[in-house]
Computed example of a mutant assay.
Amino acid sequence: MSVTNRQIRPAARPVGEVRPEDWQHCSAHLEEPGPGRFAGRTRVISMDPATRGRLDDRPSCLPPVGIGEVMRAGSVVEVTASEHPGYRPGDHVVGTFGVQEHVVSDGRGAMKIDSSLARPRPTSARWACPA
C-alpha cells in the first residue's frame, strides 16, 4: 500500500485568533498495517471548541499538541486493511486519530460503531476527504 497521507499540523502557537499561517498542510507516507494493526480512511473529523485549547502550551487535562505533530481530533475512519483480530475492512471505527486522511492504528482507544444505524458522513465541505 503506497498511499500519500494528507495531514494538518500546527506550525506555531497561535496568539489570539488562529490564523492560516499557524498551520502546516503536509503529506506523509502511510505505513502498512502490521500484526495487530489496521489501516483506515478518515470519513469524519470532529473539530470542537477544545481544539483551540490543544494549541496552547499550558497545563490542561491533556498535553498540548506539539508543533509539527498531527493535530489531535476525534474522527471516524473506515477500515481499509487489517491484521487486527477485532477490525475488518469495511468496519467504521471512532477514535482520536487526528486531522489526517489515513490512519494506521493498533486499536487502543478506538471503538467500532454500527454504521447501519447512521452512516458517518461529513457535515461540512471545508476539509472533506474525498470518497
Rank of each mutant, 00 (worst) to 15 (best):
M1W: 03
M1K: 11
S2Y: 08
N5W: 07
N5H: 05
R6M: 09
R6I: 11
I8S: 05
R9L: 11
R9A: 14
P10S: 03
P10E: 02
R13W: 15
R13E: 15
V15S: 14
V15L: 11
V18R: 10
P20Q: 09
E21S: 15
E21W: 15
D22G: 10
D22R: 08
W23K: 01
W23H: 01
Q24H: 14
Q24R: 13
H25I: 04
C26L: 07
S27R: 10
S27K: 07
A28T: 08
A28N: 01
H29P: 14
H29R: 11
H29C: 04
E31W: 08
E32R: 09
G34A: 14
G36L: 12
F38T: 02
A39H: 02
G40V: 02
V44W: 08
I45G: 00
S46T: 09
M47G: 02
D48Y: 06
D48L: 06
P49S: 07
A50S: 12
A50P: 00
A50G: 01
G53L: 02
G53P: 06
R54M: 13
L55Y: 09
L55M: 15
D57W: 01
C61I: 13
C61E: 10
L62D: 01
V70G: 06
V70F: 06
M71K: 01
R72A: 15
R72S: 15
A73H: 01
A73N: 12
S75I: 01
S75P: 13
V79A: 00
V79C: 03
T80W: 07
A81G: 10
S82K: 12
S82Q: 12
S82A: 13
E83Y: 06
H84N: 02
P85V: 05
G86P: 03
R88F: 03
R88C: 05
P89K: 04
V94G: 01
V94P: 01
G95F: 01
T96G: 02
G98F: 07
G98H: 09
V99M: 09
Q100A: 12
E101S: 13
H102N: 09
H102I: 06
V103G: 06
V103L: 07
V104L: 02
V104Y: 05
V104S: 06
S105H: 03
D106T: 12
G107E: 09
R108E: 11
R108Q: 13
A110Y: 00
A110H: 03
A110S: 13
A110E: 00
M111F: 06
M111C: 04
K112T: 12
K112H: 10
I113L: 11
D114I: 07
D114H: 00
S115H: 12
A118F: 14
A118Q: 09
R119Y: 13
R119S: 13
P120Y: 04
P120L: 07
P120Q: 00
R121G: 13
S124G: 00
A125F: 10
R126C: 11
R126Q: 08
R126K: 07
R126F: 14
W127P: 03
W127V: 10
W127N: 10
A128T: 10
P130Y: 07
A131I: 05
A131G: 12
A131M: 05
